[in-house]
Amino acid sequence: MLATVLGALNQGFLKTLQLFGVTLLGAIPLGLIISFGSMTRFRPLRWLTRTVVWIVRGTPLMLQLIIIYYVPGQIMDSSPWPMGENGRFLASAIAFIFNYACYFSEIFRGGIEGVPRGQREAGQVLGMTRSQIFFRVELMQMVKRIMPPISNEIITLVKDTSLARIIAYEELIKAGYDFLKGSHGYSGLLWPLFFTGVYYLLFSGLLTILFNRTERRLDYFKV
């Protein structure tokens, strides 16, 4: 029984990791783009971006998952998502990337706006181009500033992946819960569900160590 349960939980954890990884890879660059949109001097774009961020941050991720997965099928003749698990993964990934990009964008915006104006001006009078100022001067200071809030958000993401269960994506919590409902020939088993907590704890513990190390490596300067 133990081997069966652990095997199924490992499977679920792998799916959790996939969603986690893809969300990070997509949400960080998209978040940067959204943060530029929310800071642009072109007003219509700034308002549009900030409205979208408000909506995404102001509604539950679970609701967004349901809308993204089910609504296109309601409007069109058939659901645009591939059948089965692939479709559920794709829909989850898009919902998660968009949701987390909006949160990240606000953190990035804070990080960029937090770099004193004098830094950019010092770069300008030294004849640096805009991109040199961003990459050589502002970026590192921004990274240092945003490390704590980003770490926090990423740890939250580890656990938020469990929301994908609502559209039956077979992540870790679903794998555990299935033993309660009945799967692999067992039903009414409660402990596998509780045991998923160990996976989350270990994984977020590992990330915490990683983030602490990164923060310590940025300790050589102060902003």
């Binding site: 004193p116 004098g118 830094q119 001006e121 010092a122 300008q124 009078v125 004849g127 640096m128 181009t129 805009r130 001067v137 590192m140 200071q141 240092k144 050589y220 300067f221 102060k222 902003v223």
Partner: peptide, 23 residues
């Protein structure tokens, strides 16, 4: 931008608040 940079380099500026790059 290129022309502006060349023109800028005629001048140097020392700020009240130093504005050194901390990293």
């Amino acid at each position: 931008e290129a022309a502006l940079r060349r023109r800028r380099l005629h001048f140097g500026l020392v700020f009240q608040s130093f504005n050194l790059f901390p990293q």
